[in-house]
Design a protein around this nucleic acid. Structure first.
Ligand SMILES: [Mn+2]
Ligand SMILES: [Mn+2]
Ligand SMILES: [Zn+2]
Ligand SMILES: [Zn+2]
Lengths: 143, 143
DNA sequence: TTCTTCTTGCAAATGATTTGCATTTATGAG
DNA sequence: CTCATAAATGCAAATCATTTGCAAGAAGAA
C-alpha cells in the first residue's frame, strides 16, 4: 500500500490510535488528491458540498490530531492561512506563485548551512523554515 | 549621521514625507535600542510606562507607515506575533532560540540556490524567507 | 449489542491585527 | 508667530484565522 492511496493513510490513522471517522476519511482523501498543501478552509470548502455535515472546526481538530502523530505537516507560506499536507517524509520547501497561488515543492539546500550555523553560534539547531515567493511562467505571461 | 542613532531615522522619516510625532520618535528610539526584532506589543509595553499616552493601534499604524517607506522590515518568526526591525539594508535571516526567544542575525546562504530555482522552474523569484529555530547555549545548559 | 471513550457540531471565545470616526497635532504658508 | 489643513492619534469596535467548551453522536473493543 502506497502513500498515494487513501488506504495507506487510513491504516496509519488507525495505527496511531486515532478513530477513522467519516470526516477524517474525507479529509485524507482530499489531501491525497491535492497537488499541493491546502488550508483548513480549502479542505472545508471542497468537502462541504459533497459531505453530509461538516464543520471547519472539525477540519482543524483533525489536522491537529494528524500532525501530533506525524501524518500531516503544517506550513506557513505567508498567505494568511496555514497550509497542510500529508507528511511524505521527505524534507523540503515550497515555491509559491504570488499570482495564482500555485505551489511547487523544492528540495533543501541548507544541510551544510545548518552545520555552519551550529558551529558558529553554538546553538542546537531544531529546524529551519524556508519558502520562496515568485511568479510562475503562466502568470508572468498574463500581466 | 549613522544608522545606530535615532536622529538618522528621524531624518529619514521626515524625508519620506511622514510627520515626526512624539509616538513615532519613541517607536524609533525603541527600535534603535533593540538588540533584535520586536513585536508591536513588545514596543507598546516598553513605551506605555514611560510615555504619556500610547495606543497599540498607533504602534501598528506607525510600523506600517515605516514599512511602506522601507524604513522598517517585518518578519514572521512563527512566534505568534510578527516582529519588526529597522531596515539595515543588509539582507539576511534569523536564528531564534525557542527557549528564551533570543534572536541572532544570520547571513544569507541562498544566492546560488535562488538562481538554480529560477532556472529549473522558470519562475521569476521575488523573495525568499528563511528562519532557523534552535536552543541557545544558555538555554541548553539550564534544562 | 453494549459500554466506554473519542469525535463532532455548534456556538462562543481568543488573540493578533485592522479600521472608523471624532479629536488632536505636526508642519508649511502667510 | 498664528493659522489652516492634512495627517496622525485615541478609543472602541470590527476582522479573520484559529481554538475551545460542552452536550450529543459515533467508533471500536469486548
Ligand atoms: Mn530545508
Ligand atoms: Mn536570504
Ligand atoms: Zn502563477
Ligand atoms: Zn535561549
Amino acid at each position: 500500500m502506497k502513500k498515494g492511496q487513501v488506504e495507506y493513510w487510513e491504516k496509519k490513522t488507525r495505527e496511531c490510535g486515532l478513530r477513522l471517522t467519516r470526516q477524517r476519511k474525507e479529509i485524507l482523501q482530499t489531501l491525497v488528491q491535492a497537488t499541493g498543501p491546502l488550508s483548513a478552509r480549502e479542505i472545508f470548502l471542497k468537502l462541504k458540498p459533497v459531505s453530509e455535515s461538516f464543520e471547519l472546526s472539525t477540519v482543524y481538530r483533525s489536522l491537529h490530531s494528524f500532525m501530533e502523530r506525524g501524518l500531516v505537516r503544517e506550513t506557513d507560506l505567508g498567505t494568511g492561512e496555514k497550509k497542510y499536507e500529508l507528511n511524505s517524509g521527505e524534507h523540503g520547501h515550497h515555491l509559491v506563485c504570488v499570482g495564482c497561488g500555485e505551489i511547487l515543492f523544492l528540495g533543501c539546500p541548507l544541510r551544510e548551512f545548518e552545520r555552519e550555523v551550529k558551529e558558529k553560534t553554538r546553538y542546537e539547531i531544531i529546524e529551519h523554515r524556508l519558502n520562496v515567493l515568485g511568479v510562475c511562467p503562466s502568470c508572468k505571461g498574463s500581466e
